Amino acid sequence: MRSLLRTLCLTMLTALSMTGTTALAAADTKLAPLTIYHIEGRRSERLVWLCEEIGRPYQLEYKRGNIVGSMATIREISPLMPVAPTVRYGDLVMVESGAIIELILAREGGQGLVPPVDSADYAYYLQWMHFAEGSFASRVIADYRVEMLNVQKPNLGYKLVDSEAVLKFADAFLAKNPYFGGSNFSAADIMMLFPTNFAAGMNVVDLAEFPNVATWKQKVESRPAYKKMLEVARPDGLVGSPKPLPKKE
């Protein structure tokens, strides 16, 4: 009897010593089915990249080379908010790539893509996870649209939001840290690459002026999981991307 009680106590102490996400992952190793509804070259790439990084099974749904067809599929799943990504995670239907990434990593374990909560890196990891869309993407897309109007109608005189200030902020951080998650590659880097590529690809900014961001971009795009994402989620390159701005002289 004493031996049984001792075994039970040790088991309980071991479980209590685990972090919440680790204990959850250990308690339920059966992963919820995940379907990613995708459009080539859109933010849904983040979910594919994440799954490839952590070896997480997923089903990818899109019509190759057919943005209208891919969007029609998404509308069937999420008619009130048809965006890419839309995912079916178990019984849930969700949008917002950052929220989906955080949910998967919280429920299934950080898989090395989340710094320890008590580490110095964790605060910056959270900052860049949310900065990617909240400050970065919003400014870059606004500047792209404003500059495109200025190109089409030069006399309108619309003012830019100033994407360059955002890149300066990011470049200064990367001067002291190899990744946006701090010391190691993390989900924050997955979040930050999309607006970086949009800014550079649409000629909103010149990455040559931000060498730390350029070096980081090359480094994360060389990862095997990123290359695998391109293979399965963007087999024909960018499909139906917006027209780039004229390059600044």
Rank of each mutant, 00 (worst) to 15 (best):
R42H: 02
L47N: 09
Y58S: 06
V93R: 12
R75Q: 14
L47H: 07
D121K: 02
G69Q: 12
I36L: 05
D28H: 14
V87W: 02
M71L: 13
D118I: 03
D121I: 04
T73A: 13
R43G: 11
A84N: 00
A23I: 02
L103R: 14
Y58D: 06
G110N: 11
M71C: 01
T73G: 01
A106K: 12
R64D: 09
A32Q: 14
I54R: 02
I104V: 13
D28S: 15
V95W: 01
E40H: 00
H38W: 01
E96Q: 10
L92S: 10
P57M: 08
E45F: 08
G69L: 12
V114P: 02
R46V: 08
D121V: 02
A123C: 12
V114N: 05
A25R: 12
D28A: 15
I104N: 07
I39M: 09
I67N: 10
P82K: 08
P85Q: 07
V83M: 11
I67P: 00
D28K: 15
V95D: 03
T21R: 14
V114H: 03
S119W: 04
T29H: 08
Y62I: 00
R43F: 10
E102Y: 05
I100W: 09
S44W: 00
T35F: 03
D118T: 10
V93H: 06
T35I: 11
G90A: 08
K63I: 14
M18F: 13
A25Q: 10
L50E: 09
Y62R: 00
P116E: 11
T19S: 15
A120S: 12
T29Y: 01
T86G: 02
R107Q: 14
T22P: 01
D91I: 03
G112E: 10
L92I: 03
R107E: 15
M71K: 08
I67Q: 10
E40N: 00
T86P: 04
V93F: 04
V93D: 02
T35R: 10
G90T: 09
E76K: 15
A106I: 02
V93N: 04
L113G: 07
Y122M: 06
E108C: 08
I100S: 09
A23L: 15
V95S: 07
E45P: 00
K63V: 14
Y122H: 15
L31D: 07
G109E: 05
A32G: 01
A32S: 14
V83G: 03
I67R: 12
I74H: 08
A120R: 11
G98V: 13
K63Y: 03
V87S: 03
V87G: 03
R107I: 02
Y62L: 01
A99V: 13
A123Q: 13
A26L: 13
S78P: 06
L60N: 04
T73C: 01
A23G: 15
K30V: 15
I100G: 06
P82V: 09
E53P: 05
V87T: 08
Y58P: 07
E53V: 05
G65L: 05
A23S: 11
A23F: 12
